[in-house]
């Protein structure tokens, strides 16, 4: 968390300086008042959200997702892949290595993309944060509008690439890099 914190602190310092030069102390005070009011309103929801996130991470294991994703294919695979992506409880530095661990098993590209899009769009562990930090109505609207997105992603990929596996795509990439 040190990297993001440094970046955020730097950006905040820059914005504070800009606010001071644009509107002086009154604008600075307005900014701090905005921050205070939003934070006070969000604290109970943030605490409840973290209680939920910690338990979800214990309830759903990587092994369980691994077992399930290898069982399905076709449109059913797309639906299950999207849903499993949504409940996979991990940040990018965990779910990308997890997906990479499934390489070499001949899993079609469309299943990978359904899983990845499901993770990025549904993300059960992130949704409570979206509700608490943005707004419940916006979070629900966003989820409703993007609900078909991972499924469409899977169907589109299947339409364009058929049963080609992730290894086929990555091998072509490596082949080109090596000048094959």
């Amino acid at each position: 968390m040190k990297g993001p914190l440094t970046t955020m602190t730097g950006a905040t310092a820059l914005v504070i300086i800009m606010a001071y030069f644009q509107g002086g102390t009154p604008l600075l005070l307005e900014g701090f008042r905005n921050a205070y009011h939003t934070m006070v309103r969000a604290i109970p929801l943030i605490l409840a959200a973290f209680l939920l996130i910690g338990q979800v991470q214990q309830l759903i294991s990587t092994q369980l997702i691994n077992r399930l994703i290898l069982r399905f294919s076709g449109w059913r695979g797309i639906a299950y892949g999207s849903a499993l992506g949504g409940i996979f409880p991990a940040p990018p530095y965990v779910y990308y290595p997890f997906m990479a661990s499934l390489r070499g098993k001949g899993i079609p590209l469309y299943l990978f993309l359904s899983f990845l899009s499901g993770k990025q769009v549904y993300d059960l562990a992130r949704f409570p944060m979206e509700v608490s930090l943005i707004s419940p109505s916006i979070a629900c609207l966003r989820l409703a509008l993007t609900l078909p997105l991972p499924l469409s992603m899977g169907l589109l990929t299947r339409c364009f690439f058929g049963e080609a596996s992730l290894d086929d795509i990555c091998t072509q990439h490596k082949g080109k890099e090596a000048g094959v």
């Binding site: 955020m8 800009m18 900014g31 905005n34 921050a35 205070y36």
Partner: peptide
Amino acid sequence: PVIVVAFVLAGMVEAL
């Protein structure tokens, strides 16, 4: 710490 700093940044962005 990231959340607190993000709230300050967001408050400033909103005012700016």
